Amino acid sequence: MQLVVARIGRAHGIKGEVTVEVRTDEPELRLAPGAVLATEPASTGPLTIETGRVHSGRLILRFEGVSDRTGAEALRNTLLIAEIDPEELPEEEDEYYDHQLMDLDVVTKDGEEVGRITEISHLPSQDLFIVERPDGSEVMIPFVESIVTEIDLEEQRAVIDPPPGLIDDQAEIVSSKDDSSEDADA
């Protein structure tokens, strides 16, 4: 099974190094020197990591055969893909690979069917489940502990406790206006 572990960003310096946007919780395992990664587009790879280091909070990699800025710039926006065993699980108990979460049924804690996970969007602040509802519409569910209360891989379902308005039109409208000021305007 293939897993996207990073996206190559800008060239860094003149010796073939690139910045990478890490898309794995295990960069020390997936992006270590010697790792051979498939690429998307496939024509740019496979790439073998020669060196890696952190600079100003960003991961900087150099690949075998890429020794100058021109070569590094040619790799920009390339996705790095690791081959993993489909049975392999993340080290932490409450972590999941995207492929484990795809197609899970989403239900509320009361058992109401919400839909099925069709996509996972990785944003800087949190991940989102894109859930297709039975009527074909989509709803976005933040993958945070307060909302996604349980992931049951055996039952192939995700249990959620959504706040009002997340999956329905029952949002609570809270006004900061003082009710007495409305009477004065009348």
Results as ranks from 00 to 15, higher is better:
P142I: 07
F129K: 04
G115S: 07
E112S: 11
E145K: 14
P124L: 00
I130D: 00
I81Q: 11
V144G: 04
D103Y: 03
T149G: 08
D103W: 01
I117F: 01
T108Q: 07
V107A: 10
K109W: 02
E93Y: 11
Q126P: 03
P134L: 02
V106K: 02
E138C: 03
L101K: 10
P142N: 03
P90D: 00
S125C: 01
L89W: 03
Q126G: 03
R133C: 09
E91R: 11
E95T: 14
V144K: 10
L123N: 12
G115Q: 04
S121E: 13
H122Y: 01
V131T: 11
D135N: 15
E93W: 09
T108G: 06
E145F: 07
P86K: 00
L80N: 10
T118W: 01
F143L: 09
Y97Q: 00
I141M: 02
G136P: 02
G136M: 09
P90A: 03
H122F: 08
A82I: 05
F143D: 14
E119G: 10
Q126A: 09
V107D: 12
D152T: 14
S146T: 14
V106R: 08
E88R: 14
D127I: 01
T149L: 02
E91N: 01
P86F: 00
S137L: 07
V114M: 06
R116H: 02
V106G: 08
D110P: 06
D110L: 05
Y96C: 04
Y97T: 02
E145Y: 14
P124H: 05
Q126N: 12
E132N: 05
T149P: 11
L104R: 09
I120F: 04
P90E: 00
I84P: 10
H99G: 02
E112A: 15
L79F: 12
V114S: 02
V114A: 07
Q126L: 15
S137G: 11
D105I: 13
M102E: 02
F129N: 03
A82S: 13
S146W: 00
L89I: 10
D135F: 07
E88C: 04
V148T: 13
Q126V: 09
I117Y: 00
R133P: 13
L104S: 06
D110W: 08
F143W: 06
I84N: 06
A82N: 03
Y97G: 08
R133K: 14
E91C: 01
Q100H: 15
E93V: 11
E91G: 11
I141H: 03
S121V: 15
I117D: 04
E132M: 13
D105A: 14
L79Q: 13
V106W: 11
M102G: 09
S146L: 03
D135Q: 06
